[in-house]
């Protein structure tokens, strides 16, 4: 349980938010060209990092906007928050 600084609403309790999983997984540009292996990679395979991870969150009980977060999954410390479409901060 932690506080999240929503880029639109400010600091709110984590229970107002919904985690959306790993960030920056790009939808295939040519879906019809994809092999089964590439589909599996896109749909199911995850980095699931213990450490600093880039992920998406949604402020479901607030502004309902999506944004990105850099969080250390080994201690839940939030390193950075940035809006959709912005470049991720370099680590």
């Amino acid at each position: 349980m932690f506080l999240i600084n929503c880029p639109y609403c400010g600091e709110r309790d984590q229970q107002e938010f919904k985690a959306g999983g790993e960030a920056h997984i790009e939808r295939p540009k040519q879906p019809t060209e994809l092999s089964d292996d590439e589909w599996a990679e896109y749909l199911f395979m995850r980095k699931n990092i213990k450490g600093v991870q880039f992920e998406r969150w949604n402020h479901t009980h607030g502004c309902r906007k999506w944004f990105n977060m850099v969080r250390d999954t080994s201690n839940d410390e939030i390193k950075a928050i940035y809006k959709m479409g912005e470049k991720p901060p370099s680590q």
Partner: peptide
Amino acid sequence: TDDYVSYTQKGSHQ
């Protein structure tokens, strides 16, 4: 379960 990836063995109060 909580809906976010975490290795902290804690979890949320709610």
